[in-house]
Design a binder for these strands. Structure first.
Lengths: 206, 206
DNA sequence: TCGCTTCTGGAACGTCAAGTCCAGAACGCG
DNA sequence: CGCGTTCTGGACTTGACGTTCCAGAAGCGA
């Protein structure tokens, strides 16, 4: 049990760049075809590295997958900025909903949530991956909750509202929406899910 | 492009039983470990058949997967009966929510939605499977919608309410809830998601 | 510049999984 | 009962995939 946060103590500038290239290629491929559908050979080729490099930076495919999870967590949160940090009024929530819908539209509804897809594929077969995904979702949920708490503190949201619960419900709607959007190749489910979440939040407005 | 509905013209009683055993074993294993995590050898052993039998009943693993999707669609809908067919008042909706939560609790939150998991894993890599999953979700959604339409027809639900949209939103909440429940190993997300959906429906009560 | 560490290329290995083949047993219709 | 079809067992082939190994190149602190 060693900390997952520090990954490889000594890395040259060049080393960091190579490692980064590998993780990015792997993340892209695993998003498109799933983890099982992505061979180390695929990653190798896409990143333009040799197989010894892969195993120089990652002890195994499982370790690479963990790095991909960390990478996608950052990517998902970053893609929602700056809106995600400012969900402190209904207008901001609406802007964020539009952003999420736009992102899914952009990719033609191919692929669901980068974290959600990994979660579905890995939860039952890789406990460590599951843990990291739980942490990733928690950060996302916390960002939403913080905005709602700010709304509440400033008196826009009823004191009866539970920002933690509302945040969980909103994330639930996003995940379900993205999953159905991916299967159906249609943005409606994401929009519908988020509209429901926002309507639900609105019932707690003052 | 041949019809998927008629699967193998001539099947002896014994043949049907064997085929059934294979599909059930495969469905179980694929639910637990994912499609990619389940080898034909695993299925073979679990079903107690020889590999020639597997390929006697299914042309390939992909074909077996389609049979599993069909099987899980029936199973998911059947598991929600009789509640699912009678979602025509708030009390019935609440009973159904409790049932879904209870089912997820029973399995210790291991595994998400049998259809949703398949959807996440297969949508991008198996177009035929994706299509079948779309059809499966559509049946589920239609069942919910029919209940809401009944409520509306009988005057309990506002004429402004869109049963189709509400059904999609409810299904979205279920899927997101089950996914998060699976990663977190905690029923809260399913309950939260369904509570939100029901609250949302309540805002259209007369 | 020297010497140690990190980084890289590419071949090779062992394993395992999907799918094939064939011979024979069970079945069921006439 | 007899014959064609369906069903079954198990060995085998083929290819892919994760991983290892080693030798050499590049980078970096002293």
């Amino acid at each position: 049990m060693e900390a997952v946060t520090d990954e490889g103590p000594r890395l040259t500038r060049k080393g960091r760049a190579t490692r980064q290239r590998i993780v990015e290629a792997a993340a892209q491929l695993m998003f498109e075809r799933g983890v099982a559908g992505t061979s180390t050979e695929d990653v190798r080729a896409a990143a333009g590295v040799s197989s010894s490099q892969l195993y120089h930076y990652f002890a195994s495919k499982q370790h690479l997958v963990r790095a991909v999870i960390a990478h996608q967590t950052e990517a998902v949160l970053a893609a929602q900025e700056p809106q995600l940090s400012r969900l402190d009024c209904m207008g901001a929530l609406e802007a964020w909903r539009d952003l999420v819908v736009a992102l899914q539209t952009q990719r033609g509804c191919e692929g669901g949530c980068p974290l959600g897809s990994l979660a579905a594929e890995l939860s039952e077969i890789d406990p460590d991956a599951r843990q990291e995904l739980v942490a990733g979702f928690a950060r996302w949920e916390a960002a939403i909750r913080d905005g709602l708490t700010a709304m509440q503190r400033r008196g826009e949201l009823s004191a009866r509202a539970d920002p933690g619960l509302l945040a969980l419900q909103t994330l639930t709607a996003v995940q379900g929406g993205l999953l159905l959007s991916q299967v159906r190749r249609d943005v409606d489910p994401v929009r519908a899910g988020l509209d429901m979440a926002l309507s639900h939040i609105r019932t707690f407005l003052i």
